[in-house]
Design a protein around this nucleic acid. Structure first.
Length: 286
DNA sequence: CGGAGTGTTAGTCG
DNA sequence: CCGACTAACACTCC
């Protein structure tokens, strides 16, 4: 699931409880989720202290005193749930309906800390991964991604420059490409295009400067609002602290097929672009 | 029951 | 370069 706002929310929560803690336990029930050998994980995780928790695109980066970064990608259904020794819970990722307890049948990785707290990784579809990357490799890794849309590196001129290279493609396909803008996914692309009043199947070359300006601004606006709402959760899942994402209530088009457009009242359309379900208002978007 | 669809992304093929 | 399609997997919805 998680797109930038969800991973950002998880990052903030985890940073508040993991930083300066030392890892003393690591258990894996589904080795294929690990991109390095188990021995390697044990060597660089056990005994290491967590120095920082960061985010780049949809990746979670956990900096370790062993000189390695633990990279976690949640893909479609990955979920991280932290539980303190006293029982407090923070979770993030795709909600699993009816499963709010940890560990559960989808818990495939468990990380234990010296203070008695634990971090559980659940993943129904098992697409996510954990990988250890050293200082040199991390640079190369992260350089493959486009600008962070909420950082000062995401300027209008840089955005336009990147888009020009893809002028014959549909704007939605381009925005889903992590090399163009890091961290957007299906929900926030649809939402950004609605806000910018651009039809998702428009070719980039057809877009006027004013539309690109609107899009650039809309992307930032949508993501900022979603982070404030702690992201978007499908279904009515609530974690143990009752703090799951509420952006679902604020959305304009995603998952609102046939419901009235919040701007003009016309029914929201759904089509397929780039193989993904795509929602838009045929009246408000051009 | 069967088939389509689901928040991601890497890979193949034309 | 680009898009269409598939695969990884489990589950829900119609």
């Amino acid at each position: 699931m998680p797109e930038l706002p969800e991973v950002e929310t998880i990052k903030r929560d985890l940073a508040s409880v993991l930083v300066n803690q030392r890892i003393n336990y690591f258990k894996v029930n589904k080795p294929k989720l690990l991109r390095n050998k188990l021995i390697f994980f044990n060597h660089y995780l056990l005994g290491a202290k967590i120095l920082s928790v960061k985010r780049r695109a949809k990746l979670l980066l956990i900096e370790l005193s062993s000189g390695y970064y633990l990279i976690i990608h949640l893909k479609m259904t990955g979920q991280l749930v932290w539980r303190g020794r006293a029982g407090g819970v923070k979770s993030g990722g795709h909600p699993i309906v009816g499963v709010s307890k940890v560990p559960n049948k989808y818990t495939y990785i468990t990380l234990g800390l010296l203070n008695g707290s634990k971090l559980f990784y659940n993943d129904v579809r098992q697409f996510g991964y954990w990988q250890l990357v050293n200082q040199q490799e991390i640079e190369l890794w992260l350089s493959k991604y486009g600008p962070e849309p909420l950082s000062s590196s995401f300027t209008l001129s840089r955005f336009i420059k990147i888009l020009k290279k893809r002028s014959r493609s549909k704007i939605k396909s381009v925005l889903l490409d992590q090399k163009v803008v890091a961290g957007l996914g299906n929900i926030y692309v649809d939402e950004s295009l609605f806000l910018a009043r651009i039809k998702p199947d428009r070719q980039v070359a057809e877009l006027k400067l004013q539309q690109l300006r609107n899009l650039h601004r809309s992307i930032k606006q949508v993501l900022r609002r979603a982070i404030m709402a702690r992201g978007t959760s499908f279904s009515n899942y609530v974690d143990a602290l009752g703090k799951n994402g509420s952006y679902w209530q604020n959305r304009y088009v995603y998952g609102r097929t046939d419901e009235p457009c919040r701007r003009c009242g016309r029914a929201i359309n759904k089509t397929i672009i780039a193989g993904r379900g795509t929602h838009y208002c045929a009246q408000c978007q051009f």
